[in-house]
């Protein structure tokens, strides 16, 4: 196993940080007592899997004229080496995101598909914005992504929040 050190309490750190910035209302993270569950319909070796990221394309083409981010997609064939992550909250002092495979491992997945571990990737990978608003994620972005995955006949998805 990795180690015995306690994991970081990001919710508490975030609360304290935003209080220091002068915000009076703490952010409320989503909480559920249960979780939905589905199984692969076919064996993994035959299943088509989609990869999902919270990053943006480098041209920021996922933002509309009002600055609102939307779900976006690019082909997994010849994916860009770099994606835009500067606007996301990650540990910019301890690491970097110059290696796309460290947060969206398309090449690693393709090699496992070639080795027969799973059936293969969908033709596109997809990006989903990280939003303050639970409502936007639940009512707009998640249904938009579901529609894209159904179009590509995805049978499973692996999600990599940065």
């Amino acid at each position: 196993m990795g180690n015995a050190e306690p994991t970081i309490n990001y919710m508490e750190r975030t609360r304290l940080y935003y209080r220091a910035l002068g915000y009076s209302n703490d952010y409320k993270w989503s909480h559920f007592d249960d979780a939905p569950f589905a199984r692969l319909a076919r064996p993994l070796a035959q299943s088509r899997i989609a990869l999902i990221t919270t990053s943006s394309p480098t041209d920021r083409g996922n933002k509309d004229a009002r600055g609102v981010k939307h779900v976006w997609s690019l082909p997994v064939a010849n994916p860009p080496d770099r994606l835009f992550t500067d606007d996301l909250a990650w540990d910019k002092e301890s690491t970097h995101t110059n290696d796309r495979e460290s947060f969206l491992p398309i090449a690693a997945a393709q090699a496992l598909a070639a080795a027969g571990v799973f059936g293969g990737l969908t033709d596109h990978f997809h990006g989903v914005p990280t939003e303050y608003s639970h409502r936007k994620t639940e009512a707009e972005d998640a249904p938009a992504l579901l529609s894209l995955l159904r179009d590509e006949r995805a049978e499973g998805a692996i999600l990599f929040p940065i």
Partner: peptide, 16 residues
């Protein structure tokens, strides 16, 4: 991303 995973799963697409 957790809410997205829940939505996909509730609609029959398993997630990690």
């Amino acid at each position: 991303m957790s809410l997205v995973a829940r939505h996909l799963e509730a609609n029959g697409i398993p997630t990690v």
